[in-house]
Write a protein that binds this DNA or RNA. Structure first.
Lengths: 191, 191, 191, 191
DNA sequence: CATGAATGAGCTTTCATTCAT
DNA sequence: TATGAATGAAAGCTCATTCAT
């Protein structure tokens, strides 16, 4: 049972949790309605249909994350610090919206996504790409395709985050620092 | 349209591709039947129902991969060589069954999996865990929880593999070697 | 096309007629839906599945009949009067729910019946058994097993009722009285 | 598993048992095939389709019974003796083909029966009707419609027979004699 | 002749969506 | 504006029937 101030938010956060846990296709509108504490018909007052709901949620959280990432990005600082900012952003965003990044990842090539969702997602990838490109230019990041580097950082982080969410791992400061170091080791150029 | 020698194999490989691409829930029996070039009813001659089909495929490929991994595992050699074996096994297995590891990963906590599937999956995790534990004992692997280390290697590899499959990355020897090095850097203890 | 006040009743009475006429297995959900004037999906809002529908109808009418039988049963009067009460109850119940007793009889050992249905049916048989047992004790009923006596009265009455329903017999007072006498002759002890 | 000399008989007797026990609609062709110890396809070498099989079995046993009844019918003897012949014929026929009369009764107005089956059944009814008519003419049988009298004798006998088949009643000579007397009491004119 | 693997029509059932209240 | 009963299109699944062997 969601306890958001307004019904729209309640629907969105309930749907997010269910989409992340069961997947978009295994989640029914009545499930969302029950979890959000609203009638099934109410969902259609806020979203044209299930597909639109899925896309809206995908984009909404993606945009929040992208903003989190861009907000205060230390372009002038060292690559390592920039990396730290990215990592911290992931942590912060995940703390606020525990299921959002996982939902985005597991559905980033889902059949129901529309053009706008795809390009929103591309926007996120581009930010990361820029970072890696500048890092490679400065000989601080490995000469791997950016897509590969993104895959490593993104894949590793999210798999970890899944373990935390499932209670198999405790997200203590020490662990997070170690994980950050580990991922950094993966992408940085060892001299 | 699948062109396997027998219908069972045809159904299995068609289903694997669709499950990997669209997800289990978004894949319908008629879709599988069409893709496998058989009648919808034929699928039920080989598998009791869709759930059983999902579990069978999950376990079948998981077992092949586990065997691939255990086959000729260089227990007596260095940790780095053991890691190489693991990486190479992933490459080989993925070459043979391009969608299998991705399907396994994306569905490893899916709602339709039965007990046997879960324990088969646990078996795979245990192999990797043993490797990391011995590496940590020898001070060659970072002191991170094994679950976290597995998440890093597994998550990174599969994200990469997805890019290859989608044609966004070319799986040349150089790239693979670099990726292997990158993941190794992520998990090894830097002195 | 049923014209009941509410949809549940409409479904129940439509299903009863079809189950009685064609049998449970030869009756499809779309048939019931059409006859009840509802959508096929609506049936599932009231009954979990076809099996539950079958059992509910079986029990519902069985309970009404059992009540009809027990209501005002003249325990203190003569065996003949008690028999009359039973016969009249059958007539009354059949008048209200023309297909119900026939449906119950033709499906009393059907494969879809659950434990509750079976014991409800047993409850009805027990009432009749008690009657026959007391009649035998008073030397007014033949010394046949109660099951046999029940079979005679039950089988005869329902076969008759079927003929009435199919229009092959007119249920006039004279006929009913004669039939009652005939069945009574079958079970009573002739001195 | 049937052990008839030829496959056709094996199919027929297996189908009869299953049709009687589960009903025509709840009996599948594979069930019959398994029980008859033949391949499912084999059934179609002997019977065009399931409907034809159902009708053939209905008619075949009906004809045997009708012959049993007509064979040695004591037209010249007393009504009571004629009645005895009918009762004994039922017993004999039921001993030979334990499920046949029950199948015929429970399916005598089934949806799959064709014209020929219906008229075969009518033939049986006519024999009984003639008997009752002559009995009424001789003032030895109650002045009830023949259909009603047939219903009584037929319904009572078969309900009884069902109990015997289900093991709830032992078909000893004494019971049979008592039942015969009971049914006779039901139809005879008491002076 | 006999078979049983294969099929698709049609069944049971689900669920996104509508709409009267 | 909010609802949930009602719906029917489409899903999962069964089984009478066919046909290559």
């Amino acid at each position: 049972m969601q306890t958001a101030v307004n019904k729209r938010d309640s629907i969105v956060s309930s749907a997010l949790v269910l989409f992340a846990e069961r997947g978009y296709d295994a989640t029914t509108i009545p499930m969302i309605a029950t979890s959000a504490g609203v009638g099934a018909g109410t969902i259609y007052r806020y979203f044209e249909n299930k597909e639109v709901l899925g896309n809206k949620i995908f984009q909404e959280y993606l945009n929040i994350f992208t903003e989190t990432l861009e907000n205060g990005f230390p372009y002038d600082e060292s690559i390592r610090n920039q990396f730290h900012h990215i990592f911290i952003s992931m942590i912060h965003f995940t703390t606020e919206h525990s299921q959002a990044l996982y939902f985005i990842k597991t559905h980033s090539s889902a059949h129901f996504l529309n053009e706008e969702s795809h390009s929103s997602f591309q926007g996120l990838l581009n930010i990361l790409k820029s970072f890696f490109d500048s890092g490679k230019a400065k000989k601080e990041i490995k000469e791997l395709p950016s897509a590969a580097l993104i895959a490593i950082i993104y894949g590793a982080f999210l798999e970890l985050q899944r373990l935390v969410r499932m209670g198999e791992l405790e997200p203590e400061a020490k662990l997070l620092a170690d994980v950050e170091e580990s991922i950094w080791d993966a992408v940085r150029l060892h001299v």
